[in-house]
Each structure stands twice: as structure tokens, then as C-alpha cells.
Amino acid sequence: MLERLFINHYQTAAVILSGIGLTNLLLQRNLIKKIIGLNIMNSAIFLFLAAKGNINPLPSVMALAGIVITLSLTAFALALTLKIYEDSGTLNIDEALLKKTKEQEELEAIIEQAEEEEIFS
């Protein structure tokens, strides 16, 4: 198996890179680093396609499509991250979620109290 992996060394490198990107995407708590992990995965796919396309024009077309989609996706994700940072003041996904949950609970408590006062007063 190792020998066959070495014959297709571009594909092996692409798969390992994609695993690194996926681990980054799952384990990093910082949103920007998550996006970097996503981009590593995309680059791995381009490497895989480029290794396949020596005389074959089809992988080049697919890689071109992938590059454009990656650009759009990254820009959109970064804009969302910027919005989250403006809203919660942190890039850490856990802290942002905790803050959001706390705000939601406070809001619900206020609404509950207001409703009770309305009913029983």
C-alpha cells in the first residue's frame, strides 16, 4: 500500500493536506483560523485536480470553477466574521455563542416578567 501511495504522491499529499484543513476547521476556536482551514482544504482539492490534469483539460476547468467559488465563499465568510466581531467583540466562536445565549436568556426573563405583570396587575 505504501508503494502505491508513493506512486500517487501528489494525491497522497492532497489527501493529507485536506485532513489538516478539516482538523483546523473543526478544532480551531478562532473564526479566521477556521476560514484558513477551509482554504487549506480547497487548495488540497486544487492540488488533487492539478495532479490529474496533465493532458486532460477537464480538471483544469474544474479547478477554475473551484477557485472562483473559493474566492466568493471566503469573502462571504469573512464578511460574516466581521459582523460577528462587531456584534460580540470577539472572534472566539464559543465566547460569541455564550454571549449570545446569555443575552437571549436575559431578554426572555424580561419578556416573562413583563407578561406576568400584564396578566396579574
Binding site: M1, R4, L5, I7, N8, Y10, Q11, T12, V15, I16, S18, G19, L22, A51, K52, N54, I55
Partner: peptide
Amino acid sequence: IVSLLLATVAELPPTL
């Protein structure tokens, strides 16, 4: 996932 993909790569035919 990586080991599954690596097993797949090992089965891929070599490029030209």
C-alpha cells in the same frame, strides 16, 4: 476520513 481517503488513493491508477 483521512485513512479512508488514503486507502482510496492507494487504489487509484497511476497517472500517465
